[in-house]
Design a protein around this nucleic acid. Sequence first.
DNA 1: ACACATATTAAGGCGGTATTAAGATGCCGC
DNA 2: GCGGCATCTTAATACCGCCTTAATATGTGT
Lengths: 233, 233
Amino acid sequence: MNKPLILVVEDDTAVRNLITTTLKAHDYRFLTAANGESAVLEASSHNPDIILLDLGLPDMDGVEVIHKVRSWSNLPIIVISARSEDTDKIEALDAGADDYLTKPFSVEELLARLRVTQRRLTALQIGAANTEAVFTNGKLKVDYAAGCAFLDGQELHLTPSEYKLLCLLCKNAGKVLTYTFITQQIWGRSWENDVASLRVFMATLRKKLEKEPGSPQYIQTHIGVGYRMMKVE
Amino acid sequence: MNKPLILVVEDDTAVRNLITTTLKAHDYRFLTAANGESAVLEASSHNPDIILLDLGLPDMDGVEVIHKVRSWSNLPIIVISARSEDTDKIEALDAGADDYLTKPFSVEELLARLRVTQRRLTALQIGAANTEAVFTNGKLKVDYAAGCAFLDGQELHLTPSEYKLLCLLCKNAGKVLTYTFITQQIWGRSWENDVASLRVFMATLRKKLEKEPGSPQYIQTHIGVGYRMMKVE
DNA sequence: ACACATATTAAGGCGGTATTAAGATGCCGC
DNA sequence: GCGGCATCTTAATACCGCCTTAATATGTGT
């Protein structure tokens, strides 16, 4: 996977800088937001991998931010807060947060918890059921650990979106995946336009891995429903 | 999902009882282990959903337990420890723990973090191929989760309406379904013309799954009433 | 044999999907 | 900060297949 993109939501400039310099030093990319409104905006427009969220924001309560993000996405949210009360923790966690650190926090612990979250993300892409690191189907091979795909021994040059799409289909091989499910997994949302984009990606993906894109061998269309990875001998 | 099974690993009897009574009160099932060896054994033999792990065990270090479990499984591990040093936290998290609470911990917070973990588990199952919803009748198979049907092991290529119709009959196997009921389920309406369409769909469907469409084996006509999926041996 | 209900067949219109290309965006090195 | 490259988005068009409809054939009960 490429460098993960972290959205840092924190109004205190000093703390924000501390976090961002730490992130930069450890090979993360990052965005920042100083209030709730821009946090939601950044999250929806840049689709980060993880959100680091301070609860004490000037314009709205942090829990509200969690709710808004959760309304369209389930990307990991790690809360960093000065409030150490149990009720605060519980409220945030039940609202949809994945972890909760209290200030003052150790930078090393933050990094460790980020690694945990990342580990979970990559585990997700491999799929929970089959712990196989390599998916094989006919002449198609997908090496999840290496993050690349092969057809007939030859490596396929796939864009990030194409690769995600292929992984999703492979890890659910045999099942029909609906348009909305696919777009939610890839973009964390499901708008009308995303389905159109999905069709474009499907076209380019098929062109790369199907010998006759007209009569696909691997990816089958289910009209009005979605797509499905066929099991090839 | 059924009541989740929690493995509680804790050598202090008092703390262990506190945790287990709490779990029992909140509709969890649980197992217990008082040392590292039995913890690994229980985990491998009973396949719990989540492990609650105390690091201070008499026979081996808790981190070692994490490593052993992680060698074959990635089930969620929540560490509960008296050690509040950063290095301890980081070591455990990097070894494969999913969360880390320091004693004394709030019972409510523990429950909240358990809910977070559960939420993550169920979210995973949406994408994973765990739901075994398959209808079987003679040589006919309908995989609702995969969204496709098989006859004698061979996949049937059905149009959306044909598939819907087949599902409806299968889910009500043995019952006679009236024309109006079927059309309302498929199109959400019941006009005169829809019954005519239904007859056409029935013809194409039968042609695909009946060996002798003249004397149907699976779908029986009830004149003046509707159709019925027969139960075949 | 007649009337009625159901099955079959074929043709046309329509909607959803594939494909293409151009414009927008973001990312990288300089 | 700027320019070039790759990727993503958006829109327009062509295409294919499904659905509908109607007309005809077959079957069933009286």
